[in-house]
Nucleic acid binder design. Structure first.
Length: 484
RNA sequence: UCCUCUGUAGCUCAGCGGUAGAGCGGGUGGCUGUUAACCACUAGGUCGUAGGUUCGAAUCCUACCGGAGGAGCCA
């Protein structure tokens, strides 16, 4: 009989302090399903805690499939009819119930799984009422969205959110290993003209005072908003710590109703001092490759599930991205390629206009058939902070396009020359007084610097093949929907 | 915000002018090892809402509400 800490199974770090919850048997610590399924050999006593995915009865006993979120696969438990609570409890377990099982880990007699647990005790923590909405099959993504509090218990969403967690970790690892400093830029900002989109106002004023424009009486003494980008604040830290990155929530009040937009999303924004556009593009491409590589290595089971049920070509595409070089073309070249393509685009391709979704997709999916970085855009279609090139026509901007998603990274070298920045502010109709601290960076030891923004959810869509941003964020916020 | 499609049982959908259907899920019973188990029986719906056309509307028309896809904007 094994005792606490003597299991042949290595307990997960930290689990030794989790108290056993059984009334009658406290001699063995909890194992996660993932550990048990990878067990090197049988084990006389294990403890599992999780949720019932399905129950099948065969006369003398029941099969219970238990999932605890540690991995995609379930653990099969054999619950014999001689168990004291079999008739009253075990035989009535439905999908969704929470249980704790103590028993013996043995080689499975059936096919389909290497190991199973012969239960000595099945403790029911909570039955699932008979209207538990998750079934063993056949749910639409739309329905699952309406039960966002339960959907993490489905195979697909368990996999999505394990990958989300891993990718967040991989992003921090990527930057930390390269000496980047993680900066927490503010979520509430008083600069009302960051220029990246419509903003949510944050206020303590009542409706009347708000309508009367009594901004001076507001909490911050002037209008405040939720951030649409940490870039400007990020630049101040890059101009001190050299290489920094942010990773936090971002808010846009745009009335966007698409599968690629959310009102609240997470963004990663690195910023590098003493760096030009080429270095910026190098970093963006290295990051995408590193993240894809990490997912392939550490999320293989979950990616396999996506490849089977969500996106048949997923693994092929990810391996391609990991192994092949990315294409890189100037905006001018991209326009020429599109004009020479002979494609009948809905919107005409014309120098000086933004590339439309259909143009971006043609470049990455048809022409190059790999991720493409497009750089040096006409200055007229880009924001004030981007650095003007010597040709007088373009700015040092870049967009990284990937198949299936389109733009996943947008970045630029920043205008570090004081006179040019002032001129840009004027051209864009922005007041220098509102950006006094941003302009100051150019007065006190200015340096060439560059950075980009990566939409975390768009990265997840790319890595998982999931087609809607609402399905890669735990509780999506979109126009008209803030449930949960 | 615009365009298109869509809203029938808990879920996925069929029915498209003549008294509401299936599969799954739920309940009951059966089955010595199942794998979205299987077999039998059974409960369950004022057909998104409000008007209109008609002898008669889930079905046709209008408006509104919800959902999806595409576009714009972007990450």
């Amino acid at each position: 009989m094994s005792r606490r800490g003597e299991s042949v199974l290595e307990p997960p770090s930290g689990s030794a302090n989790i108290p056993a919850m059984s009334d009658t048997d406290t001699s063995v610590t909890r194992s996660m399903v993932k550990q048990l399924l990878a067990a090197p050999g049988p084990c006389p006593e294990v403890r599992v805690q999780g949720w019932v995915r399905t129950r099948r009865d065969t006369g003398a006993f029941s099969f219970l499939e238990i999932n605890d979120g540690s991995c995609l696969a379930n653990l099969q438990v054999i619950a014999d009819a001689v168990l004291p609570n079999y008739v009253m409890e075990v035989a009535h377990l439905r999908t969704g119930a929470s249980v704790e099982v103590v028993g013996e880990l043995v080689a499975s007699q059936g096919g389909g799984q290497a190991w199973e647990v012969q239960a000595r005790e099945v403790m029911v923590h909570g039955h699932a009422e008979e209207d538990f909405p998750l079934q063993k099959k056949g749910h639409s993504m739309e329905f699952l969205r309406s039960i966002a509090h339960l959907r993490p218990r489905s195979n697909l969403f368990g996999a999505v959110f394990r990958v989300r967690s891993r990718m967040a970790y991989a992003i921090h690892r990527f930057f930390q290993e390269r000496g980047f400093v993680y900066v927490h830029t503010p979520i509430v900002t008083a600069s009302d003209c960051e220029g990246a989109g419509e903003m949510f106002r944050v206020t303590t004023l009542d409706g009347e005072s708000l309508a009367a424009g009594k901004d001076a009486e507001d909490f911050f003494g002037k209008p405040a908003y939720l951030t649409v980008s940490g870039q400007l604040e990020g630049e101040t830290f890059a101009c001190a710590l050299s290489n920094i990155y942010t990773f936090g929530p971002t808010f846009r009040a745009e009335n966007s109703n698409t599968s690629r937009h959310a009102a609240e999303f997470w963004m990663i924004e690195p910023e590098m001092a003493f760096c030009d556009l080429a270095g910026d593009m190098d970093l963006a491409e290295a990051m995408i490759k590193a993240l894809v590589d990490d997912a392939l290595e550490h999320c293989a089971e979950d990616l396999g599930f996506f490849a089977k049920f969500v996106d048949k070509g997923l693994l092929e595409r990810l391996q391609f991205v990991r192994e092949r070089p990315f294409a890189r073309v100037s905006y001018t070249e991209a326009v020429e390629i599109l004009q020479a393509s002979g494609e009948a685009f809905e919107y005409p391709v014309e120098y000086g206009h933004n590339l439309q979704s259909e143009h971006e997709r043609y470049l990455t999916e048809r022409h190059f058939q790999c991720p493409v970085t497009v750089f040096n855009y006409p200055r007229e279609i880009k924001p004030f902070y981007m650095r003007q090139n010597d040709d007088g026509k373009t700015v040092a901007a870049m967009d990284l396009l990937v198949p299936g998603i389109g733009e996943i990274v947008g970045g630029s070298q920043r205008e570090e020359r004081l006179d040019r920045l002032r001129a840009n502010l004027a051209t864009h109709g922005l007041s220098e007084a509102d950006y006094w601290w941003y302009v100051d960076l150019r007065r006190y030891g200015t340096v060439p610097h560059a950075g980009f923004g990566l939409g975390f959810e768009r990265l997840l869509m790319f890595v998982t093949g999931v087609g809607n941003i609402r399905d890669v964020i735990p509780f999506p916020r979109v126009p008209g929907w803030a449930e949960f």
